[in-house]
Design a protein around this nucleic acid. Structure first.
Lengths: 219, 219
DNA sequence: CCCCGGCCATGACTTATGTCAATTGGCAGT
DNA sequence: ACTGCCAATTGACATAAGTCATGGCCGGGG
């Protein structure tokens, strides 16, 4: 059990942690690979240790919606269904902890603290999805981008307003925000012209006017 | 305890049901009224008994996003947070069961079956939100409308393809689908012209080509 | 060092959706 | 039956976003 700061483990006894450990596995995945596909059986719950992954849904006609961008500490695969209704792809080389779902849920029945932690995680995910839903329904392109910036700033390790590493491609931004890549490009240009942000290099974002970004992103 | 078919109660003993009953109250609410406002303390969990309500989020600048349309049997207010991050408004006169949230969750700790039922409900809500998110990110106006039609058809009591009562106004449709009322009107006209649907009167929908609607709505 | 290929940016144009305003249509109350 | 009201439709127009095409930039492999 090398990753102990995880919310899943809060308040558990040493014995309980040891039991978790019996069905936890460490998993590595290369950048751009899929951890699992949409509709595959929901055998495991994962916890991101390092790197970054996206949760995405692809429809029969090829349109893709990115549902979430996950960082170390984040969970995925928590569901009551017997299959995932999304796929998970790595943005970077990534390491994850993999827990057998059935056994994790079984243990959670015995250990109230563990169950409470899982519920807390679900609740956080739900709140994020609601924000995202609102953004997609009501916001214009440049506002959606600001929403993304705030997400990156708040959640990406090491991010500061002065420097945020854009590990997502323009296409990923588009798929996360329900836009096309060209609209993303143009909206970035607009925000640059307005002096709200700067993009010193392709994959570096500098938020010049944080208040403006927050205002535009506001849910 | 007059409403016994509810999923929340599946598998509970008579004694357990009696305990639930001690903190359940029946609540009536007139059409168009708010059951609670956004950011109000999350004191209760509700179960819709009759009528229909919407879950909605309104931002500081006045834009409104309807997150869900709920029917008898549906739950709302399930959260781990101490406040709701949405408001609930009735579309029709409605009756609901109100459960004190703290006491319900307390009982759920004692009664694993009850906890499992709550988890099942949360899971269903989550799946719906994911579909909705995808629709808002990727679909055109007339496709979004078809998505709504399928929702109504599947969930509204008494709905058949030949006759669906539109208890939602055009504005509600717009706010649910992230569109304007005019676009809703025009997209309805388009679907009528294409022979996919008919609207015999303002609030009655007749799906003429169900396959086409399903195809357009597909998530 | 140079070339190639994958992103990204940008321009020109199209289209979907939003905005504003006028009109219609149904319904309730008199 | 008339009136007034509210919701929905429709038209004319504006604008945001999508589409298609081109060219630039940068990094990796030869």
């Amino acid at each position: 059990m090398i990753y102990n700061e995880c919310i899943l483990f809060h308040g558990l006894t040493y014995t309980e942690l040891k039991m978790l450990d019996t069905f936890a596995e460490q998993k590595k995945i290369a950048a751009g690979k899929y951890l699992f596909d949409q509709n595959s059986p929901s055998d495991n719950v994962y916890n991101v240790i390092s790197g970054s992954v996206t949760v995405e849904r692809i429809s029969s006609n090829g349109r893709r919606q990115i549902i979430g961008i996950l960082y170390p500490g984040d969970f995925l695969g928590i569901t009551n269904s017997d299959h995932y209704d999304y796929a998970v792809r790595s943005l970077t080389d990534a390491e994850l902890y993999q827990f057998n779902r059935k056994r994790l849920y079984g243990l959670a029945k015995e250990v109230p603290h563990l169950k409470a932690n899982i519920d807390q995680i679900s609740s956080t995910i739900f709140a994020r999805i609601l924000d995202h839903l609102y953004i997609l329904g009501q916001k214009k392109a440049h506002e959606r981008l600001c929403f993304l910036f705030i997400q990156l700033l708040e959640r990406q390790p090491g991010a500061t307003p002065e420097r945020i590493d854009l590990i997502v491609s323009r296409q990923d931004m588009a798929d996360y925000l329900g836009l096309t890549i060209e609209t993303v490009s143009r909206s970035l240009a607009k925000l640059k012209n307005d002096g709200v942000i700067a993009i010193p290099s392709l994959n570096h974002l500098n938020i010049l006017d944080l208040d403006a970004v927050k205002e535009l992103a506001d849910t």
